[in-house]
Design a protein around this nucleic acid. Structure first.
Lengths: 201, 201
DNA sequence: AGAGTAGAGAACATTAAGAGAACAGTCAAG
DNA sequence: CTTGACTGTTCTCTTAATGTTCTCTACTCT
């Protein structure tokens, strides 16, 4: 897969956004305006490059004749449009900043777990969510941890250490009660460093 | 694999960090600044060495044309250990499955928004979370949407259509009231397809 | 001393990005 | 069915940024 230049990437981003939003491909002039230039010829050159990279298909001479192929994870970053509730139309903010999924979640000793159960709903971790865990044996007070009890049962709870050295595992759900254990019975397996959820669109 | 000198290692480290954080490779000048020297020519020599060692690939004369070899899949994916609360030590389950961040979140016409405010807390979307939006102008009943009201104020709410064609935007927070608008005043900008959160570890 | 590693910086070759003209094909309205 | 405006395609030009190749200097280590 050829490497894309910045302008080419901008073009591709605009394309997928446009096609996703309206049902049809943009005109060359619309692309030009969308990526902030004036020349149709230049846009055409970028499109040719994208076609050669296998990312789009151009139906020759057809107006709005651009089809985007199964794009692939060419990037592991998403454009960050801005803050919601900031009271601005999103189009206006479009642009520069990007949020890197890698930076967000990846790192040494991390793995994912799918959450079952409602014990942390009030902390915004729902049944079916995926949490990213950083493996470690100790954790700070108040951290959300994966705790193994008696070497058998693994649960996700908020950690609290008592003065006498014993450990309380706090669920974030008023319907459930805190659990109290002597330190020997609890082994920490990791700390929650991230959480993610998918919605069926 | 040839042995690397210190400067070469510094270069490689900088490369992988840069590419991990942003989606693209750095310019020679950026590398130079990143490893604390001034000469592009020197950087080029290091890159040649790294290429010879099989650690990167250089696309000749292309700007930002550096591709790093080796575990590229590992950059995008996290090992999926299993289900928490399944009552098993995690080590035991660890293994096969991997969860792809790209598959989870990336796709045509998607972008990210940082959430401000508490209006969706009961749906597990907290202040400070990041939501992934798929840009579109229509949405299904019950979907969580980004809605623009009167072309001015953008908010995140659950969508409900009334029989008379008007629209109700439902917050997921008992402290807040549903908002009701005639259809003309509400423009849908996108649908929430994902959500993620980072915890300070 | 000699070999290897670091670095500076000049000179040159290409690329990326853009403007815009000219031409040809498409499409929709009369 | 014809026509004219619109749209895609192909060119050439321009400019600045960037990659590539060299030579020269300095430092370290055995």
């Amino acid at each position: 897969m050829a490497i894309l230049t910045r302008a080419q990437r901008r073009t591709l981003d605009f394309l997928s956004r446009f096609i996703g939003e309206r049902g049809e491909a943009p005109l060359l002039d619309e692309i030009a305006r969308g990526i902030g230039i004036h020349s149709r010829g230049v846009v055409h050159r970028y499109l040719k490059a994208l076609e050669e990279a296998g990312l789009i298909r151009i139906h020759p001479r057809r107006h709005r004749g651009i089809e985007l192929m199964g794009g692939r994870e060419s990037v592991l970053a998403l454009p960050l449009a801005g803050r919601i509730a900031a009271g601005q139309p999103i189009e206006a903010i479009e642009g520069q900043e990007k949020i890197s999924l890698a930076d967000f979640f990846l790192g040494p000793g991390r793995f994912a777990l799918r959450v079952t159960g409602d014990s942390m709903v009030e902390a915004g971790i729902l049944d079916g969510d995926t949490v990213i865990i950083k493996a470690c044996q100790t954790a700070e007070e108040e951290a959300i941890v994966v705790a193994l009890i008696d070497g058998e049962e693994a649960t996700l709870k908020r950690l609290k250490r008592e003065r006498d050295g014993s450990i309380t595992l706090l669920p974030e759900n008023r319907a459930l009660k805190p659990m109290h254990y002597p330190a020997e019975r609890v082994a920490i397996q990791g700390v929650v460093v991230g959480q993610m959820r998918r919605y069926e669109g």
